[in-house]
């Protein structure tokens, strides 16, 4: 990472930290504390740890709810700042559906995230979408707690 970028990153990290303090009471990511300033600002780790790379969906739904909006707002802000990244939004479904439909459902979720980020000013040319349907679960138990983690759209940074 270049020095300029790092400087910009550091400044941005400060802004994020302020936001986090304000949001700590109501936000869904209580693990975000000032301790994460050890993560290099503007890095992929920064994005995952301090911004949040994924949003979740209700069963059979693709609408962006309040907690997803909060994450995507931060993603948009971060991506506005670190303009060199392009992204792939990977849409996923839980295992409680058929394969073909879940491929389309994952694509629909990825498209919903894409639309949201574009509305927040991210250039569509920076965004690719991809659906894995139900083929790439992160949680493998046979319970609602796992299925809800798998119904997700993950924003993956594609390098600078």
């Amino acid at each position: 990472m270049s020095k300029t970028l790092f400087a910009r990153g550091a400044r941005f990290a400060a802004v994020v930290a302020v936001c986090l303090v304000a949001a700590a009471c109501s936000q869904t990511r209580p693990e975000l504390t000032s301790g994460n300033s050890s993560v290099a600002a503007g890095s992929g780790q920064d994005f995952v740890v301090n911004v949040g790379d994924r949003v979740f969906f209700l069963n059979n739904q693709s609408s962006i709810d309040g907690s997803a909006r909060a994450v995507l707002d931060k993603q948009a802000q971060w991506l506005q700042h670190y303009k060199n990244y392009s992204i792939t939004i990977e849409g996923h479904a839980d295992e409680r559906g058929t394969r073909q439909y879940n491929i389309a459902l994952g694509a629909r979720r990825a498209a919903a995230v894409r639309e949201y980020l574009v509305a927040k000013g991210i250039s569509p040319t920076r965004i690719k979408t991809l659906s894995y349907g139900k083929e790439r679960p992160v949680a493998v138990c046979n319970a609602a707690s796992c299925w809800s983690q798998n119904r997700r759209a993950v924003t993956v940074l594609n390098g600078q």
Partner: peptide
């Protein structure tokens, strides 16, 4: 865009499938 769910026609001369277009297939 992504194409999926293919299947042959009965004469084997065509393939029918889905094309993902934004939120729709």
């Amino acid at each position: 865009g992504m194409t999926f769910a293919p299947r042959f026609s009965p004469d084997g001369q065509k393939v029918i499938m889905s094309l993902q277009q934004g939120s729709n297939a």
